[in-house]
Design a protein around this nucleic acid. Structure first.
Lengths: 159, 159
DNA sequence: CCGTAGGGTTAGGGTTAC
DNA sequence: TGTAACCCTAACCCTACG
C-alpha cells in the first residue's frame, strides 16, 4: 500500500515555513518553484502547501487548548468554572511551543523523542509572543494571521 | 450527557452496504445523498457511515477467523509486526491499487473500485477469498477493501 | 488556463460508553 | 477486556473567482 495519506514530515513543514518567510503567504507556486525548497516539497502541490499552512495556523492559534482541556478532563472530571482569561490563554499558547504531533504512538519501537536538545528555548518564544502582542496591539483587535506569522515564521528555531 | 449511542440497525447496515456497492467506498456523502438510502440513513452522518464501514470491515476480515488465528498467535508469540491473515497477505503482494489524485503531480490513480461479482453458493469464507483473489488479480486493484467488498457486499442474498 | 481562497469531505488515530 | 459508536483533525477535494 502506498500512501493513502501523506503525512507531512518535519522537513517538509520546515521548508514550508521557510518558504513563507521568504516569499510570503499565498505564494505557494513561488515557494514550490524555489530551488531551495523544491526538492523537499517535490511531492507536494501548491494546494497542498496552502492547506498545510492553514492547518499549521489553526493549530498554532487554537490548538494549545485541546491538550490543556484533555489533561484536565483526564485528571479531574469536575472542572472548576473560573480560569477563563485572555491572559491565561496567551500563556497557554506560549507554553505549548510546538504544535505537538501526536508523536506517533508507534507499535514499532523507536519513538521520536521530541525532547531534543533545543527544546527549552521556550522562554524565547514567550518573549516573541509578548513582543508580537505588544507590537500588534491587543490580541482581539489584531489579525490572527499576522500574529501567527510573527511568532511562527519569524524565529529560525527548528531549522 | 447527550449521546445515547445509537446502535446501527440491520436496515441501516444493509443500506450502507448497498450504498457502497452502488457508489463505492469512500463516497459517504454521495451514499448519504442518494435518495435510495437517505431515508434509512437520515440520522447518520457521512462520518458515521465511514466509521461503521470500518467496523464492519474489521469484523468481516478478522472476526470470522479470529479464533483460529488467535490460537496460533498464542503459540507463536513473536510474530512479525505485520502479521496478517494468510489470504490477505497473498493478495497484498498480488498487486496494488491506489486511489486517485487526478490533479496532483506525483501521485496517480484513477481508483474506481468497481467490484462486480457473480453469485454462487457460499461454502466457506476461504473459498470466497480465494475466488476474490483470483478474480481481482486479473482486474487489477485488490487490497483488503476490494476483497472485503467482494465477500461482504457482493451477495445480494443476505438481505 | 493557472493559481489561490475557502468551504466541504475523507482517512485514520484516538476516546468513550457499554 | 473488548469493541461498536463516536470524536478530532490532518490531509485532501471541489468550486468560484480573479
Amino acid at each position: 500500500m502506498g500512501a493513502p495519506k501523506q503525512k507531512w514530515t518535519p522537513e517538509e513543514e520546515a521548508a514550508l515555513k521557510a518558504g513563507v518567510r521568504k516569499h510570503g503567504t499565498g505564494k505557494w507556486r513561488t515557494i514550490l518553484s524555489d530551488p531551495e525548497f523544491s526538492l523537499v516539497l517535490k511531492s507536494r502541490s501548491n494546494v497542498d502547501l496552502k492547506d498545510k499552512w492553514r492547518n499549521i495556523s489553526v493549530t498554532a492559534l487554537w490548538g494549545s487548548r485541546k491538550k490543556a482541556k484533555l489533561a484536565l478532563k483526564r485528571t479531574l472530571p469536575a472542572t472548576k468554572p473560573d480560569d477563563n482569561n485572555t491572559a491565561v490563554s496567551i500563556v497557554a499558547l506560549a507554553n505549548d511551543d510546538e504544535r505537538a504531533k501526536p508523536t506517533s504512538p508507534g507499535r514499532s519501537g523507536g519513538g521520536s523523542p521530541r525532547a531534543s536538545a533545543s527544546k527549552r528555548s521556550i522562554t524565547s518564544l514567550d518573549k516573541i509572543i509578548l513582543e508580537a502582542i505588544t507590537n500588534l496591539k491587543e490580541l482581539r483587535g489584531s489579525d490572527r494571521t499576522s500574529i501567527f506569522m510573527y511568532i511562527e515564521v519569524s524565529p529560525p528555531l527548528g531549522f
